[in-house]
Lab assay of single mutants.
Amino acid sequence: RKEMTAACTPRRRIINLTSVLSLQEEINEQGHEVLREMLHNHSFVGCVNPQWALAQHQTKLYLLNTTKLSEELFYQILIYDFANFGVLRLSEPAPLFDLAMLALDSPESGWTEEDGPKEGLAEYIVEFLKKKAEMLADYFSLEIDEEGNLIGLPLLIDNYVPPLEGLPIFILRLATEVNWDEEKECFESLSKECAMFYSIRKQYISEESTLSGQQSEVPGSIPNSWKWTVEHIVYKALRSHILPPKHFTEDGNILQLANLPDLYKVFERC
């Protein structure tokens, strides 16, 4: 597991931080080997919608929660590849102030007048994250320049770009939802926020969305749709870069829909 690298990086740093090793061990302890084997050997059937997909393993048909699986995938990559990410360069710098204002204007932020003026909160978020810029760049390849612009994001899987519609809320939550006081809790909560931002979430995906850094293989055609990215990038990574937690067998994120021999018997009677 320590050699797990989802995106190509030129050289690998050895990380011996106790906090990170502890988080890696927790993933191992909570892992479910049968689910790992199923995901490793599954045959992708198709997307139901951005949140759900169908896959077959041996004779069984499964309904998989793409949102939760991708979130767990990105969390584990962030923990196992800690401080070893490439950088996704933004085509132009994104001012943190503008991103924070967009987030505060969104109902998702939960902002009320009692929280104070949005401009003041946005300025605080910019200054707060600028103070964390060195650590964010060093460990997470999340790059913020001296003017308070976001200029780079971590490359977690080759050819995958997170849904940038979720970027404003991500920046807001970096400042408000991460435990910045304790090292282990900081790395864990920061990785979880980043994983949620990178995950496939239906509120940020339309039929026209593209999450891939590449064009489709047909010359002159439109960019790959999110469905292509889910199948050929995300579920491909799920084959080798995730140890599913045991609770996925109990919380409805992986559901067995049918045993195909039983279905064949039904059709034979028709």
Rank of each mutant, 00 (worst) to 15 (best):
S189G: 15
E193S: 04
N149F: 09
A55N: 01
A122H: 00
E268W: 04
T210A: 07
E37H: 13
R36I: 05
E119F: 07
L69A: 02
L260T: 15
L61P: 04
L190V: 14
S191I: 10
S206C: 14
D138P: 01
I144S: 00
F128V: 09
G252E: 15
D145W: 00
E185R: 10
V230D: 02
H232L: 02
P244N: 01
A6E: 06
E71K: 06
E183T: 04
E183V: 01
M38T: 07
Q56E: 12
E217H: 09
S221I: 14
P107L: 11
P162T: 00
L129Y: 06
S109C: 11
Y160E: 00
F97H: 12
S240G: 11
I144P: 02
T5N: 06
E119L: 14
S206H: 09
E143F: 10
H241V: 05
R11L: 12
N224D: 11
S191Q: 02
Y80T: 13
Y204G: 03
H42I: 10
N149P: 00
V87L: 08
L21Q: 11
R89H: 12
V266D: 15
K131D: 15
P168F: 04
E193H: 06
L172A: 10
D145E: 05
Y204S: 03
I200W: 06
F248E: 00
Q214E: 14
C186K: 04
I125A: 07
E72S: 10
F44Y: 04
S19M: 03
E127P: 03
L150T: 02
I151C: 13
I205T: 06
Y124I: 12
E185P: 10
F170D: 01
A7I: 06
H32L: 15
E134F: 07
Y198G: 02
L90D: 02
M135P: 04
V87C: 14
E114T: 14
G152R: 04
P95G: 15
R11P: 08
N16L: 10
E146H: 10
V126A: 11
C47N: 12
L211K: 07
D145S: 07
L104A: 05
S191G: 13
E134T: 08
H232T: 05
Y235W: 03
A55F: 07
P50K: 09
Y198C: 03
E3V: 07
S91D: 14
N149C: 08
T66S: 09
K192A: 06
P168V: 02
Q51F: 02
M196D: 04
E123Y: 06
L172I: 07
A83T: 04
L238M: 12
L136S: 03
A175K: 06
P223D: 11
E217N: 12
I125P: 01
K227V: 05
T59V: 07
I157K: 02
K68T: 08
F248V: 03
F128H: 14
N16P: 10
C186I: 03
Y75N: 03
L164I: 08
Y264C: 12
M196A: 08
K184F: 06
M101L: 15
K68R: 14
E182L: 10
G46M: 08
L90W: 04
E127K: 07
P117M: 09
I205V: 15
S43T: 10
Q256W: 05
E134H: 06
L39R: 01
L129I: 09
I77P: 02
P244A: 03
P10Q: 07
H57T: 06
F248H: 03
T112I: 11
H247R: 13
M4D: 07
L142D: 01
L121Q: 12
T229F: 04
H32A: 12
E37W: 06
V218G: 14
E92I: 09
N28I: 13
V234F: 04
N28V: 12
Q215P: 07
V34P: 09
N149E: 08
L142H: 01
D251F: 04
D158R: 13
N49I: 03
W111Q: 04
G116W: 07
S109V: 11
E25R: 09
L90P: 05
L90M: 09
V45D: 01
L167D: 01
I79E: 02
D138C: 04
T66K: 01
A94L: 08
L211W: 14
I222V: 13
K2D: 10
K132W: 10
E114D: 14
P117R: 08
S19K: 04
L142C: 08
R11A: 08
L23M: 06
T229K: 05
L64E: 00
P168K: 04
V87K: 09
L260V: 14
H57M: 06
G46R: 15
N149H: 13
I169R: 14
Q58I: 08
P261Y: 05
K184H: 07
E108T: 09
N16Q: 10
N159Q: 13
N41C: 10
L35S: 14
V126F: 05
E123N: 13
Q30R: 13
Q76T: 00
N41H: 12
E119D: 10
F187R: 01
W226S: 00
E25H: 11
E108L: 11
M101S: 09
H232S: 05
D145R: 01
C270E: 14
E37R: 07
K118D: 04
S22T: 13
K265F: 06
I144Q: 03
Q58H: 09
F85C: 06
L129K: 01
G252D: 15
A175W: 12
L136P: 00
A237C: 08
E193T: 08
A237E: 06
G166H: 03
P223C: 11
K132Q: 09
K236E: 12
H57D: 08
W226N: 00
A94S: 14
I169W: 08
R269A: 10
L150I: 07
G120I: 14
E268P: 11
P223Y: 15
V87F: 15
P219V: 13
T9D: 07
L63D: 01
L153F: 04
Y139I: 04
P244E: 02
E3W: 08
T176W: 14
S240L: 14
N259S: 09
S221T: 13
N84Q: 05
S141I: 02
L255Q: 13
I14G: 06
H32E: 13
R13D: 06
P154G: 01
C8P: 06
E134W: 05
L35F: 11
A83Y: 03
L238Q: 00
C194V: 13
L136A: 01
N179Q: 12
V178P: 04
L54I: 15
S141R: 08
P10Y: 05
Y75T: 02
S206D: 15
R269G: 10
F248S: 03
D158Q: 14
S240P: 00
I77D: 01
W111T: 05
E71Q: 13
E188P: 02
E143V: 11
I200R: 01
P261R: 13
W228V: 06
Q30T: 13
W226R: 01
N41P: 02
N28G: 14
Y204N: 04
L190Y: 04
V230P: 00
R1T: 15
E134S: 05
Y204P: 04
A175E: 02
G166T: 02
I222G: 12
K265Y: 06
L90V: 05
S199Y: 00
H232A: 04
Q256N: 06
V178L: 03
M135D: 04
E33W: 10
W111N: 05
E143I: 11
V230H: 00
